[in-house]
Simulated assay, not measured.
Amino acid sequence: MEQPDLSYTVTTARDFEAAVKAVEEATAAQGMKVQHVHDVQATLRSKGYDSDPLKIIEICNARYAHEVLAKDVLISLMMPCKINVYVRDGKTYISALRPTMLAQFFPHARLEEVAREVDTKIRTIVEAAR
Rank of each mutant, 00 (worst) to 15 (best):
H66L: 14
A18I: 11
D39W: 02
V37T: 15
S51A: 13
V114H: 01
V87Y: 01
V23R: 03
R14F: 09
A65S: 13
H108E: 13
H36S: 09
S95F: 10
M1K: 09
T100A: 07
T43G: 07
L111F: 02
A115W: 00
A65K: 03
H66M: 11
Q35S: 13
V40Q: 02
L97E: 09
V85D: 01
A18E: 14
M1W: 08
R130A: 14
D5T: 15
Q35M: 15
I57C: 02
A129S: 14
E117V: 15
L6T: 13
A18S: 14
T120V: 14
D89W: 08
M32Q: 06
R14T: 00
L44G: 00
E117C: 07
V118W: 00
P80E: 11
L6I: 15
A115K: 02
A96L: 08
K33R: 13
M101N: 10
R45T: 14
I94M: 07
V73R: 06
G48K: 09
T124A: 13
I75N: 02
L102Y: 12
A129K: 01
Q41V: 01
R116I: 03
D89F: 06
H38G: 08
T100L: 04
I125P: 01
P53R: 04
M78K: 07
T27I: 09
P107F: 06
V73D: 06
E2N: 13
K71D: 02
S95I: 07
M79V: 06
L69W: 04
A42R: 00
G90I: 14
E117S: 13
N84G: 15
Q35R: 12
L44T: 01
R63P: 07
A28Q: 12
V10A: 05
Y64E: 12
M1V: 15
R88P: 02
I83L: 04
K91F: 03
V40A: 08
L69S: 00
M32E: 03
Q41N: 10
H38A: 15
A128Q: 09
A109W: 08
L74K: 14
S51K: 03
A128L: 05
L44R: 00
C81A: 10
T12D: 10
Q30H: 11
Q3Y: 12
M79K: 02
T11A: 13
T43R: 05
E25T: 15
Q30T: 11
